[in-house]
Amino acid sequence: MDALWQDILARPAIYAGAICTLGLMTLIYRENAVYRFFEHVFIGLAAGFSIVVLIKEILDPFLYQPVFKKGEWYWTFVFMFGLLFYFIHSRKYNWLSRLPIGFLMGFSAGQAFQGFANTYLPQLARSFRPLFVTTPDGSWDAAAGINNLIFMIVLVTVMSYFFFSFEQKSRVIRNSAQFGRWVMMVAFGAIFGTTIMARMALLFDRMYFLFSDWLRLVR
């Protein structure tokens, strides 16, 4: 028993993490009181951490330091403007919170033009591909040409699926949209395949934590 206490005192974070992990994992059996307790603790810690970050990494460097260390008193206005966010909790005056929200939305909307130009124009340029491709030694690279053709067919048919989503009389467009739908399934299948990888990785991490970091049964 003494050895266990010593181990707990030596590695309190690991023990706390293990208890919390097991507590939350009880959900896979069914919804229960233990899970609800740890769920509340989790929300409390996450909320508390937000307050810590607000003070340590936002108010300190962007308000306290500039105002009281450098004399840049005008940041006080920004802080007071930011306080308007909290009127969202007032039934009567919650419209005031729309001022800073609108300000931040305006900021991001103003950047959208540059974002669009820089993101999509190079994409557009790279979509027009040569069908006759040669290797560095000058010979014909049939595989690359076929791949380029497939790429462009997929691109055009998927676009036709969205652009002509209303009922079409033209058979060509109908078939093109149908093919576009099929190749989109290929993309969604790829996304599903990678989703499995992502989720399994998360579960492996938990099991590794329990069996290696906590119980030290695995090296």
Partner: peptide, 22 residues
Amino acid sequence: AVMAPETYPYMDSGQIVGIMEG
């Protein structure tokens, strides 16, 4: 990993030089 497929068009265009997928 779940996001990797959506980034391929950007690697194709050279806007992303390489991807470490999950």
